Simulated assay, not measured.
Amino acid sequence: MTTQEVANRLVELCREGKFEQVFQELYSPEIVSIEPDGGPWGTMKGFEALEKKAKEWHDMVTEFHSSEISDPLVAENFFTMTMKSKVTMKGMDHPIDMDEVCVYRVADGKVVTEQFFYTPMPELV
């Protein structure tokens, strides 16, 4: 797959809420995931680490209210998109808005690096 094809498919699956399928279909087994400093996860490597992070994230959320995924912007073997969501977290009595920029690097038709840019919320760390 080309970088554009990977980007389009990743956006499609994210919009459908099929995040586990993103891992299985589009990610390299040696995937590196980078979260911002001050966030709960830091840098992780491999499918198992990403699956653990995804489970921890979903366990922190009591309700998903909305989600918006932008179209991808592709340059060479990189692409980016934004993710916006409104969620209610455990221990909170009101929904919060979350907004992040996601950057991916593709090699040999698979995502090999993902990096997220957002301001970590102290109450979630």
Rank of each mutant, 00 (worst) to 15 (best):
T3K: 01
L50R: 10
G39P: 06
A54T: 15
E48G: 04
E16P: 03
L50A: 10
A7N: 06
L50W: 07
Q21C: 05
V106A: 00
S85F: 04
Y104S: 02
G46C: 01
V112S: 07
L26K: 06
V101M: 13
Q21M: 11
D108N: 15
P29E: 12
I69A: 01
P122K: 14
Q4P: 04
Y104I: 00
W57H: 11
A7I: 02
A49M: 09
N77M: 03
V112G: 07
M81R: 09
E100D: 06
M89H: 13
I34L: 06
V11S: 00
P120Y: 03
P36V: 07
I69C: 02
F116D: 00
I69P: 00
K53L: 12
E100M: 13
H65V: 11
C14Q: 14
K52C: 06
L73P: 01
K86Y: 02
S85Y: 11
H58D: 14
K90H: 15
E76K: 09
R15I: 03
K52E: 15
F116S: 02
E35L: 05
L124E: 05
A49R: 10
T82H: 02
T119G: 07
K53Y: 05
V6F: 01
W41E: 10
V103P: 00
L73E: 06
L26G: 04
D93T: 13
S85I: 03
K18P: 05
S67N: 07
I31P: 02
Q115N: 05
V22H: 01
G38K: 11
N8I: 04
E100P: 01
T2K: 04
M98I: 11
W57V: 15
V74I: 08
T43V: 12
R9A: 10
E123A: 13
K52W: 09
K90A: 15
M92D: 12
M81C: 09
E30H: 14
E100S: 10
A107D: 13
